[in-house]
Design a protein around this nucleic acid. Structure first.
Lengths: 151, 151
DNA sequence: ATAATTAATTGCATTTTACAAATAAAATGG
DNA sequence: CCATTTTATTTGTAAAATGCAATTAATTAT
């Protein structure tokens, strides 16, 4: 194992994943959206009938910045807003068909790239890695450490 | 294992690591530097006598943006520039004592938080996770996938 | 019914970003 | 050795992103 501390190991993996993310995102939409916007699309596709605040909270971004980014995504035709039936204050976010296509596309390309990376590992190592990421996610969710958005 | 694809697993871990990073960074310097600036400090502490371009390339940020961020870090007293002895075009970056202190501080706090997260796992799971991150880093470095800065 | 709370948007000032151009030093090649 | 090209970094400038304060509008609490 590399002679480095935990934080360094994480930092470097995260940085590299960031590059992957950025390039896949650009490749899929021809620079039409930013990486920040692709995160909004990703999270919107995951949640069930999310409000503005749900997505902004999940991503840890300021609601006012978020509001403007969503407007940009609506203008580009990837996202739509629908008023909540029981509470006219909240807007329910959803992907349009174009948005779903883009999300699927990014997801496919990302998974292909990740497959390519993991293809260098043995079957054993490979399942060790995927299980570990899963373990990590669960540990982070249950942790008292700050693995959640500020505030 | 969670019923999710590879990309989703990664995306969520990376997002949570981002929150951790941000909050540790803020905690250590009382908001005196941004997360982007903490990455510059991190990378500057890792490399041996790096030039401006070395760090900008490693982080995948535009050299002009980087130039201004470095200026800000110099103004705050965390970083210093020294002309390269054999090439007057090149500026060698280094952390000041204050910068080293901050980097150590962030590193300690991050490692504590990561320890806290991993403390939820069994010894076996824990070593599985750290070995996996290490494996991942190596696979990403050797990969043909875009785990390196654009261009 | 009035006050207090909540969701989302908009005003505005600051910061970040990145392309183009400028500057300056080193390398290249007649 | 001089002219040209390349390389490293900085600066001009305009666009985009950010986040606080204030606003609007709907809901809940008293």
């Amino acid at each position: 194992m590399s002679n480095q501390n935990l934080r360094t190991l994480f930092q470097l993996v995260v940085r590299r994943f960031g590059f992957l993310n950025e390039q896949c995102c650009n490749q899929c939409c021809n620079q039409d959206i930013s990486v920040a916007q692709s995160h909004i699309i990703f999270e919107t596709s995951r949640q069930h009938n999310p409000s503005m605040r749900d997505i902004a909270n999940a991503l840890g971004i300021d609601i006012t910045t978020f509001s403007r980014q969503v407007k940009a995504l609506i203008d580009k035709g990837y996202v739509k807003k629908t008023p909540h039936p029981n509470d006219q204050r909240v807007q329910i976010l959803a992907l349009t068909e174009k948005g779903k296509d883009l999300e699927r596309n990014i997801d496919d390309v990302m998974n292909q790239q990740l497959e390519q990376i993991l293809s260098q590992l043995s079957d054993e190592e490979r399942s060790k890695v995927t299980q570990s990421i899963d373990l990590l996610n669960k540990a982070m969710v249950n942790s008292e450490s700050y693995c959640c958005p500020p505030q």
